[in-house]
C-alpha cells in the first residue's frame, strides 16, 4: 500500500497546477537553481554504499530500542535484577531473624503494619517484611531462570532433534519425529500442575524440586515450538536453494534452519520466565517448595500469608505484587521481542 514517493511532497503541491514557468524566472536564478537540481538528482540516483548492511539481530535490537513496551519491560526487569543481586546487602535486617517476635500474635489477630523502622511491617513471626522481600527476589529469580533454562535446553534439544530429523531426514526421519512428538504430546496433555506435583512427589520437597518440576512442564512447549518453527523454515525457499546449491544437510540445519527458527523460541522463553515464577509460587503455595520456610521466597511468603489474609492482607499483597510486576516485565519484553523479530514487520 505504501508508495515510494520520497515523502517531501506537500499536500498542496499536487494539484494540476500550471507548469513551472521555465521561461519567466530570472535567468541567473534559473541556471543556479537548475544546477542545484541536477546535483539533487545526481545525489538521489547516486546515493551509494553508505549503508554497510545490518543483520537481522542488529535491526531487531534497533527496533527494540524504539519500542516503548520493550523499554518499560526492560526497566522493570532491570530493577528486579538489581534487587536480586544486591538485595541481601541492602536489606535493613536479617530476613530470618524473628527480632520482633514478641509484638506479633497471629492467634489473637495482632499484626504490625508499616512503621518507621519496618517500612512494610512485620510478618507473622515478627520478621521484617521488607528485608524478606528484598532477599526473596534472588530466590524467585533463581527459580524462574533455572526452571526456564531446564525447559528451554531440554525442550530445544528434543524439538531441534525432531525437527531436523523431520525436515531433512527423509523417511526414517519422519518416523523418528512421529515417535518423539507423540511422546511430547502426551506430556503436553498432562495438566502442568499435576506433572509438577508428580515430579515433586518423586524428588521430595525442596527448592530443586520446584525448579525441575516447573522446568519439566515447559519442555514439551519448547519442543513443539522449535520443531514447528524449524519445519516452517525447512520448507522455505532459501533452504531449498541451499539444497540446490549442494550444501550439506548438517550445515543446512545448523546454518539456515536453526538460526531462523530460534526467534519465536527466544520470545517464548521470556514469556515462560513469567509463568515459571508464577508456577513456582503456586508449587510453594501448595507446600511442595522449599521446606525451610525461614528462607524467604515470594511464592512461599504468599503461601504463608494466605492463612492470615483476613487480619493482615498486606502480608500477601507485597509478594503477590512482586510476582505480578516481575511477570509483567518479562511478558512486556517478550511481546516486544516478538514484534521486533517478526520479519514481516521489517522495513
Amino acid at each position: 500500500m505504501g508508495t515510494e514517493t520520497t515523502g517531501a511532497t506537500p499536500p498542496d503541491g499536487d494539484a494540476p497546477r500550471p507548469a513551472p514557468p521555465a521561461g519567466t524566472a530570472a535567468g541567473t536564478a534559473v541556471t543556479s537553481r537548475r544546477k542545484d537540481r541536477i546535483d539533487r538528482l545526481a545525489e538521489l540516483t547516486a546515493r551509494t554504499d553508505t549503508s554497510t548492511g545490518s543483520g537481522l539481530w542488529v535491526e531487531a535490537l534497533r527496533r527494540l530500542r524504539a519500542n516503548k513496551t520493550a523499554l518499560i519491560g526492560l526497566g522493570v526487569l532491570a530493577v528486579f535484577l538489581v534487587l536480586a543481586v544486591i538485595g541481601p546487602w541492602i536489606a535493613p535486617y536479617s530476613p530470618t531473624a524473628q527480632t520482633w517476635r514478641g509484638e506479633v500474635f497471629p492467634n489473637r489477630g495482632i499484626f504490625v503494619g508499616p512503621r518507621s523502622g519496618n517500612w512494610l511491617g512485620l510478618d507473622h513471626l515478627g520478621r521484617d517484611e521488607l528485608s524478606r522481600m528484598l532477599v526473596g527476589a534472588r530466590q524467585t529469580l533463581l527459580v524462574g531462570v533455572v526452571a526456564t533454562l531446564i525447559g528451554f535446553t531440554v525442550g530445544a534439544l528434543i524439538g531441534g532433534f525432531s525437527g531436523a530429523a523431520l525436515a531433512l531426514g527423509g523417511r526414517a526421519g519422519r518416523t523418528v519425529d512421529t515417535v518423539v512428538m507423540r511422546f511430547t504430546d502426551m506430556l503436553l496433555a498432562l495438566p502442568s500442575l499435576l506433572l509438577a506435583v508428580s515430579v515433586a512427589a518423586i524428588m521430595g520437597q525442596s527448592l530443586t524440586t520446584v525448579m525441575v518440576a516447573v522446568g519439566v512442564v515447559q519442555i514439551p512447549v519448547f519442543a513443539r515450538l522449535l520443531r514447528g518453527s524449524m519445519l516452517a523454515q525447512a520448507n522455505s525457499d532459501y533452504v531449498l536453494a541451499a539444497r540446490a546449491l549442494g550444501v550439506r544437510r548438517r550445515r543446512i540445519v545448523l546454518a539456515h534452519v536453526l538460526p531462523n527458527s530460534l526467534g519465536p523460541v527466544i520470545v517464548q522463553s521470556t514469556l515462560a520466565l513469567a509463568t515459571a515464577i508464577i508456577e513456582a509460587a503456586a508449587l510453594s503455595f501448595l507446600g511442595l517448595g522449599n521446606p525451610d520456610a525461614a528462607q524467604p521466597e515470594w511464592g512461599v511468603m504468599l503461601a504463608q500469608a494466605q492463612r492470615f489474609f483476613d487480619q493482615a492482607p498486606m502480608m500477601a499483597v507485597y509478594p503477590a505484587l512482586g510476582i505480578i510486576i516481575t511477570a509483567l516485565g518479562f511478558t512486556l519484553l517478550g511481546e516486544a521481542m516478538r514484534e521486533a523479530l517478526d520479519p514481516k514487520l521489517r522495513s
Binding site: T5, G13, A19, R37, L41
Partner: peptide, 29 residues
C-alpha cells in the same frame, strides 16, 4: 524505488532516457 518527489520534478526522471534539467522544474503539468 528510484524516484524523486513530485514537488521537485518528474518522479520518473531518475529512470528516464529523456531526462533533462527541465524535468526538475517542479511537477510537470
Amino acid at each position: 524505488n528510484d524516484t524523486i518527489a513530485w514537488a521537485e520534478g518528474c518522479a520518473f526522471a531518475p529512470r528516464c532516457d529523456h531526462f533533462s534539467p527541465a524535468c526538475l522544474e517542479g511537477t510537470p503539468a
